[in-house]
Design a protein around this nucleic acid. Structure first.
Lengths: 167, 167
DNA sequence: TTATAATCATTAGGTTTCAAACGATTAAAA
DNA sequence: TTTTAATCGTTTGAAACCTAATGATTATAA
């Protein structure tokens, strides 16, 4: 499986330029394409190899993880952290509540706000699950040196900050 | 918005280690977390700022793009390229066919195989759309130098190859 | 040739996901 | 105080997405 510049022969690149009649930024194209593809693979790998045994989606897992670290968290914060809308968090919270992995709690001082809280069962699940998840993470990056991993993380963070508008 | 090591104070990291009673790979965790988050932001940005005007999902766009470059492509190949299952491609092909942006064609030599082909209307859409999409890609990476973009692309490709199992 | 197995795409059923509409609550203004 | 506006989370409806089941076609074996 090749990717972009390897996959796109110079002929196709010429066609692209001619068709759009406009100087394309091929480096930007390569970064974005490979970033998206890497993330798709990563998600698929984790869901198939690890999360499927627990019947959890990637987002559901990341919510449980956040609740594990922070004990409880408001739905808005969870949405930002998981990169989905609040509506999605609400939907997944329904699923997690049905499984008794978390519960909701309304803020008494501002009754518009809702927190999610990890249940004991939820805690047991994430504590059993997380080491396996981290092992999967390790496998993914094991082809890179420690230095390369740090460079990659740093570059990705700069992209994230850029897209979140707080540079 | 901070990410991982900035967000996770050393206290929390200690808690993590104690809870799982197992040495975690924090570098791997940082790479994976930031990779996934960057991709989520990227997808959201593109869908909101560019693709929504055309009523196209990110995956639908990537199918049109592939068909534009390669004229026609089998559903299985499209699935690999887009990082989704063949079932999803089939479903999106239904949507795209309804909009008359592509059509199906059965391979006469092996009638199990199905190709998607771009229609004239589909071609017009992708040719109008792609320059805008590339402009969005450019915005995302403009905080990185050309050298940094190339390093990022190279590291991401190595992760992809690793996950696809052909190292 | 005929039966069996393998390989495709599609369909079925269910969860995730989003935007938009809604209802409840709080804040601001008159 | 009463009205208006802003801010929450949830629901709704539709598309995307997955796994598993199905149907159609081709390849292999008996």
């Amino acid at each position: 499986m090749l990717t972009l510049e390897e996959e796109l022969l110079s002929v196709e690149i010429d066609i692209l330029h001619r068709l759009v009649n406009y100087p394309l930024d091929l480096n930007a194209m390569a970064v974005v394409t490979n970033l998206y593809r890497a993330s798709q693979r990563l998600k698929a790998k984790m869901e198939q190899e690890i999360l499927s045994k627990y019947n959890l989606s990637f987002t559901a897992f990341s919510i449980l993880y956040d609740l594990w670290i922070w004990d409880s968290k408001e739905t808005r914060e969870l949405a930002v952290s998981a990169g989905v809308t609040v509506a999605t968090i609400s939907s997944i919270a329904n699923t997690l509540e049905k499984k008794e992995l978390c519960k909701r709690e309304v803020d008494p001082r501002d009754r518009r706000l809702v927190k999610l809280i990890l249940t004991e069962k939820g805690r047991a699940v994430i504590e059993e699950l997380y080491p396996k998840f981290n092992k999967g993470e390790k496998e993914i990056v094991e082809g890179l040196s420690e230095e390369e991993q740090k460079v990659l993380t740093r570059l990705l963070r700069r992209l994230i900050r850029k897209m979140e508008g707080n540079e």
